[in-house]
Amino acid sequence: MGRRGVRQRGRGGAAAAACTAAALVLGLVTGCAGGGPSPTPSGGRSAQDTSYFTGLPARPAPVLAVKIDNVRPARPHTGLGQADLVYVEQVEAGLTRILAVFSSRLPPRVGPVRSARESDLELLRQFDRPALAYSGAQTALRPLIEAAPLEAVPPGTAPRAYERSGDRPAPHNLYLRPERALTAAGDVGDATDIGLRFGPAPEEGRPAATHTVRYPSARYTFTWSAADKGWRVAMDGTPAATTDGGPLAPATVVVQYTTVRPSEFGDRFGGVTPYTETVGSGRALVLRDGRAFDTRWERRTATGDTVFTTAAGERMTFAPGQVWIVLAPE
Rank of each mutant, 00 (worst) to 15 (best):
D244G: 09
T139P: 00
P149S: 13
R299Q: 04
K67A: 11
P107K: 08
L24E: 14
T30F: 04
L182S: 08
T301N: 04
T242P: 07
G35Q: 08
R9I: 06
T309Q: 03
A185L: 03
Y175I: 05
V233C: 13
F269Q: 15
A74G: 09
Q90M: 15
D187V: 07
G2S: 13
G81P: 00
R117N: 09
G44P: 01
S42K: 01
D294N: 02
R315I: 00
R129C: 03
P159H: 14
Y52S: 05
P247K: 15
P107Q: 10
L248N: 14
S104G: 02
H172T: 04
P247N: 14
V113P: 06
A234R: 13
F308C: 06
L85N: 03
R129S: 07
F293N: 00
F265R: 03
A184V: 10
F53E: 03
G156A: 14
W231I: 06
E264K: 09
E204S: 15
S104V: 02
G266M: 04
Y175V: 09
L121T: 03
L121Y: 04
R114Q: 06
T96L: 04
V88T: 07
E330T: 12
P274R: 12
L64D: 07
T210F: 00
A23N: 13
V286P: 00
P329Q: 15
E89L: 14
A14N: 08
L26G: 05
A184M: 11
R288H: 03
P155Y: 12
C32F: 13
V101S: 05
D187Q: 06
R261M: 08
E122N: 07
I194M: 09
Y275W: 14
V88I: 12
L196S: 01
D236N: 15
G136V: 10
R59C: 03
Y52R: 06
A21H: 04
D289I: 00
V255W: 02
E277T: 10
C32V: 08
E298T: 12
L26N: 09
F198L: 05
R3F: 11
R9Y: 10
E298P: 01
V101Y: 09
Y175T: 02
E179A: 15
A93P: 00
T317E: 03
G195N: 09
R288L: 01
A133S: 14
R11G: 06
E89R: 05
R114I: 05
T273K: 06
L174K: 07
R315M: 00
T295W: 02
Q138W: 01
R125K: 15
D84Y: 03
V113K: 03
G27F: 03
T303G: 11
G43L: 06
P107A: 10
D289N: 13
E122S: 10
R291S: 04
F269T: 13
M316F: 01
S46E: 01
P108A: 15
E314T: 05
R177T: 05
P73I: 05
E179D: 15
E314R: 06
Q126D: 04
L64W: 03
V153C: 12
I194F: 11
Q256K: 14
T258R: 15
G94Y: 01
R261K: 14
G10V: 05
V307A: 01
R268W: 09
G245I: 02
R142W: 08
V66G: 11
A249K: 12
G237E: 05
A312L: 04
V323I: 13
Q256A: 10
S263Y: 11
D267S: 11
G156I: 02
T221K: 10
P178G: 12
L174T: 13
N70Y: 02
R197D: 05
V113Q: 08
A181D: 11
